[in-house]
Design a protein around this nucleic acid. Structure first.
Lengths: 343, 343
DNA sequence: GCGGTGACAGTAACCGGTTTCAGGCGACCA
DNA sequence: TGGTCGCCTGAAACCGGTTACTGTCACCGC
């Protein structure tokens, strides 16, 4: 195998056949005699020929690629998302292009540029403007993940409302807690926005006045530690429970609380959202909501692949995947049977 | 703007000019009279024409894309890596293809396939076989990140040895600790392998016998919790210090230790590696080694872009970025001035 | 008036594949 | 022996851009 900068025409010449035959052999399409096939394969093998993706894609009118757009990478949620998406795309021989719009002002343009390089795009909710989303959708199939798209752009998301409402109700009714705070920034993502709304709703359901404002922080563990600083430091009365927008924040709050010598759940109840691996393992184990993140992304990839495969370019309707309330020790529920992993 | 499935030739016909003129206008190259330019721009605007990336790339003989290959996504380290890489690629109008080989048996093939779709690839050390790496390098410029490549494949990595040796020496000599354990799997990645070797080396430097085996776990927080279970649970004598292969493991161990009522650093010293944001914020703050992960990845992207820009396809030599020992409370050093963030 | 020059536009080749279509050829049948 | 049919092969068109090259025309100086 020499240089791989061989073209069909060169291989054809070397094998003494036509380019059509080389193409047929390398794709396994059409009828080719044994003798021809042997000659072609020999030449291909000898020179390490591999057809160029660009030529192939151009002829096929298909890029063989999917795009994934997200605001920024933070924590297990996004890594799960990426892996779920990727694991669905790769077996379909589609490569995965990522675009991380994080704080970039020209995000919309970059997304549109991506639209010319892939066969379909999954956009995490709240990442780009509705206008850009709509324009993108005129170019390629688009799916919004964890959020809702404008127009009839389909979406794939988890059931935030049901579980968060159940979780909050559990704290308020079953554990008879008052003075809950919500940690997370509703303006930061559609998911958090829904969770905050459901948190308030659960209060109203029971005729309890919810807090007026959330503790608006970002979504990483460090932000949870900061929130703990803010909530537990000195002067203000300590809340009875901290309902966090995700597990990472919750783990940060947990570390902050334990580091201050507080006992969880006796002195402070903490809950998360996502059920990341660490949630089951910390002491006390974290009460949270299990969300099928990987599946969510895989479903998005499937939708796009299906739509890209058809001429009609129309991804089918939206999808809401179920979530599951996971009660563990950090809300005051008895810890599971033994200190088992629960993984 | 109607459908974007317009071609140069259609636009040319609509504007009453030749394709060459359309191309010149849309690229801003060559000389075009004001009148022609106006007509073309009008047609482009009216029909929402955007040149197809495939045709362009084919003509240019360049994909306009870089690849990034990693074993699996876990934690802040990889998210930083991706973001660093991406933030360098995007301004150069290169899209980023990712490939997550995680447990896939056909990883080598998939990497070679990627080699036909991009202008260059960065591979995280220890992700694919040396053979695949060498073949990949015959197709496109390749850089190994956090590890060493076979042959003359260039690499970009952080100085693991110097800092880990200094850190271990600090624990042994300055804090006079014995019975240190190392948590991390040297076989899992070149980075950990170097850190484990440096940990042992520091022992030998001082004539102290290092532990024969590391506590081999993966690199996530949950794995740290598991390691804590294993190390602190009951029967065996508790080690004096736990040197972790990264901060996530360390945070897991910390949570595990605090959850058991141990005091850190009085009862147990814990150190990490990476200096993730949470490291400075937990109580006690984590002694660790700061590693410029984002810069590492950005440097890799720059190397590849440079090599891809030249015909010679030869990325220049390797690069070792400096790291920095960060002493905080978890090793027994006095906590920094106040509880400040140190971020 | 003529040759030279510079600005601009268009034709056609090219990038590297796939695929249509037409034709050659042997087998088989009447 | 002539006619069909089916299998195989190759020439050429095509995918959607870019660009080398050719040509036209106006304007300039001598």
């Amino acid at each position: 195998m020499s240089n791989s900068r061989m073209t069909v025409r060169e291989i054809a010449k070397l094998a003494g056949v036509s380019v059509a035959t080389v193409s047929r052999v390398s794709n396994g399409t059409g009828q080719v005699s044994e003798e021809m096939r042997r000659r072609v394969l020999e030449a291909i093998e000898k020179h390490g020929y591999r057809p160029d993706h660009l030529g192939r894609a151009l002829a096929a009118g298909r890029h063989g690629a999917l795009g994934l757009v997200f605001p920024g990478l933070s924590g297990p949620y996004f890594t799960e998302l990426i892996q779920g998406f990727e694991s669905e795309a790769v077996p379909s021989r589609a490569s995965v292009h990522i675009l991380c719009t994080h704080l970039r002002s020209d995000a919309d343009d970059q997304v549109l540029e991506m639209g010319r390089r892939v066969d379909g795009v999954a956009v995490i909710g709240g990442t780009i403007s509705d206008e850009a989303l709509l324009r993108l959708a005129t170019m390629v199939p688009v799916v919004v993940v964890a959020g809702e798209g404008p127009g009839d752009i389909p979406s794939v998301r988890a059931d935030n409302v049901g579980s968060m409402r159940a979780l909050t109700r559990h704290l308020l009714a079953d554990h008879d807690l008052r003075d809950l705070v919500f940690v997370g920034n509703p303006a930061g993502s559609p998911d958090v926005s829904e969770r905050w709304a459901a948190f308030r709703r659960a209060h109203h359901d029971l005729g309890i006045e919810p807090p007026a404002e959330p503790v608006a922080v970002h979504m990483q563990q460090a932000d949870g530690v900061l929130a703990a600083d803010q909530l537990l430091c000195g002067d203000r009365p300590r809340p009875a429970g901290v309902v966090c927008a995700n597990d990472e924040i919750a783990l940060g709050v947990l570390v902050g609380a334990l580091g201050r010598g507080l006992r969880v759940p006796q002195d402070l109840v903490i809950t998360g959202f996502d059920d990341v691996p660490a949630a089951a393992l910390v002491t006390p184990a974290l009460t949270t909501v299990r969300q099928p993140v990987r599946e969510l992304a895989a479903e998005a990839a499937r939708l796009i692949l299906r739509a890209a495969g058809q001429p009609g370019n129309t991804p089918a309707g939206s999808l809401v995947l179920p979530t599951e309330l996971v009660l563990r020790g950090s809300c005051g529920c008895p810890a599971p049977p033994t200190g088992g992993t629960g993984r």
